[in-house]
Amino acid sequence: MIRESFSGSIPTESRKSAAQEYLTNLSDAQIGDEIDRLLSVVEPKLREKWEAMIENLPLQTQVERLWELHQKRKEALVKALPENVAILQEMSHEFVETIRERVKDAKEIGRGDNGKVLADPVNKHIAYKFLLRPPIGHQNSLIEEASMQGLFHEIAKDHAELRVGVPRLEYFSIDPRLTMLAMERLDAVSVRDILDKKAAIPEGTDIDTLFDSLGEFVKELNEKHGLFHLDIRPGNVMIHKSQTTSGHPRIYLIDMGMSKHKREVRSVVVKEDGAFVQKVDKVSDHGSVQSVRKRLKQFVQE
């Protein structure tokens, strides 16, 4: 079976001659299946273009040409990506169907301006974020968000003593059939839910200790790494539900949908106290952390 033999991947140069030899042993019908598969995994406009490019070629040459086109396209994509993110393979139909089936009746555990988060009903450790619409303005594309989340998570791990967490990025898909982030699912409540009385503040929460740590973490992000979250608000700060004693994070920063490198931040406009303010210099997440802390403390004292 051709699909099993190549399992959704494109032969690299080193395997090319073996792949060509393999092709000569296939029936026309099997080669036709492979052509269909190679064309089915690209977006419609590109598919039309590729179909036109191969239509007059012999069947076997069509497959070889499509392999080359896929390889070139993959190399072009990799060059355009953020530095800590790798596009690895095209997606198999099997994978798309697996995830679609899983999220069909999945519980929604969060919703923001641009995305919703669903809990995996099978694997309690995984949650999926789906964008509700294409990013607008300064919102990150899914791949930029994935890149930022990966970076933030690594920095949080390097500063484990602060006990601030960022959900671990498992993988992400930027295939038009399935656009999502798969990430670590947290057993935590958001400050937004606490303020809205949809969740209780976890027992034993020491607000000042947590927010001092979060303040230290964003200082590290901003000043040492030149990274800015730019959307710290009650909905994007979460507190772990249980008291942990083993050094696990107690407070989490989520949603890197607006996060930027310093070099990109000069033209960012953010909403502060109800007004849009242009952040030109001295950009910092510090004020937003203190604002969330103040609101939570006021709520607890009422």
Binding site: L46, L77, A80, N84, A86, Q89, E90, M91, A146, Y171
Partner: peptide
């Protein structure tokens, strides 16, 4: 338009 599965460098490592 970009397509595919992606992960971070640390996950790949």
């Amino acid at each position: 338009m970009q397509t595919g599965i992606g992960i971070t460098e640390s996950r790949l490592a």
